[in-house]
């Protein structure tokens, strides 16, 4: 993480206790300006609790939150002018049209009357709901409501977006659209914190990642840093059209590989995995070598998902 960038969000020993459950435990979160921060954790890991505390909607049991240099607990209303917050579960009012929905929040943020109308149209355009302007908000599909809610977070042009599982409950196509939207917003220079329990969804687009488990931040940093941590534990996966002994025979020859383990066996093929600490060039060379040696390779890939493995690894450690 580039420490020279100003921090938009900083928490110190942020803790939230619900009766006996410790939802968030001594969390020290640092989000630099302009980051697209992926906040990842399993369901119930404390993501929503953390985001609500960041948004000034929940009082921490102990610890402090600074947003843009201000204590959230002390100036909740100023903070609300700076951030756009989208909860994971939210509802819409009865008897309300799409434009009225945005009009309501625009009024709440005291958007000037003249500006309100054009702003609403712009935002509806941005989230692809321009044709639903006069529809009843309750009649919208889940994905549309999700996008409408995202639009409402932008109504006062906040510099910081707190999006709690914005893609949950969306179909794959809508997820991709949502991802594109987030990238677009990030490109506009906004700092975005987006939470999810699905890591790959975020790993690709986020500049920073924080992994939370049982209320504790178990890993955090820029995506590159986290990837680097993974270099040592990269896995290569090979499927050979032969039986296990022969397969092991083939792969043993290559340099820079650890002990191979058999992961799957079918009547005609064997799948092996082995630790590998070289770069992509080294991997290509190994493959070329094997092919010249006549190995019947049906598949050659990086084993598993690196980030997901890390995720599992980290959370497993915590569970142990």
């Amino acid at each position: 993480m580039n420490m020279n960038q100003p921090l938009v969000i900083e928490t110190r020993n942020l803790t939230k206790k619900y009766k006996k459950t410790l939802a968030v435990d001594q969390l020290n979160l640092r989000v630099p300006q302009g980051a697209l921060y992926g906040f990842i954790g399993r369901n119930g890991a404390g993501k929503t609790t953390t985001l609500r505390m960041l948004a000034g909607l929940l009082e921490p049991t102990s610890g402090q939150v600074w947003v843009a240099g201000e204590r959230v607990e002390q100036h909740p209303r100023q903070i609300h002018r700076l951030i756009g917050y989208m909860p994971d579960f939210f509802g819409v009012y009865d008897d309300m049209r799409v434009w009225e929905y945005l009009d309501f929040y625009a009024r709440c943020h005291k958007v000037a009357t003249a500006r309100r109308r054009t702003l609403i149209d712009e935002l509806l355009e941005l989230v692809n709901l321009a044709d639903k302007r006069d529809a009843n908000v309750q009649a919208l599909s889940r994905g549309m409501q999700q996008r409408l809610c995202l639009a409402h977070t932008l109504i006062h042009e906040p510099q910081l977006l707190l999006l709690d599982e914005p893609a949950s409950g969306l179909d794959p196509r809508a997820r991709i659209e949502m991802r594109e939207l987030l990238k677009e917003l990030a490109a506009m220079g906004k700092t975005i914190i987006v939470s999810s329990h699905i890591l790959p969804e975020l790993a690709e687009m986020c500049t920073h990642i924080g992994i939370v488990e049982r209320g504790k931040l178990v890993a955090s940093g820029s995506t590159a840093e986290i990837r680097q941590q993974l270099q040592a534990t990269r896995l290569l996966r090979v499927r050979l059209l032969t039986d296990p002994p022969h397969a092991l025979e083939f792969v043993r020859t290559a340099p820079g590989l650890g002990e191979a383990t058999v992961v799957a066996v079918t009547p005609h093929s064997t799948t092996l995995e082995m630790e590998f600490n070289g770069d992509d060039h080294a991997a290509a060379k190994i493959l070329a070598d094997w092919i010249t040696h006549g190995a019947p390779i049906a598949e050659f890939s990086e084993g598993g998902n690196a980030l997901e493995d890390l995720f599992l690894q980290l959370t497993a450690t915590e569970n142990a």
Binding site: L57, Q78, P87, C149, H152
Partner: peptide, 15 residues
């Protein structure tokens, strides 16, 4: 609270 719009309302700067 029941419609789950309370958080959205409280996240606005309305007093």
């Amino acid at each position: 609270h029941q419609r789950k719009t309370f958080d959205l309302l409280m996240a606005t700067p309305l007093a």
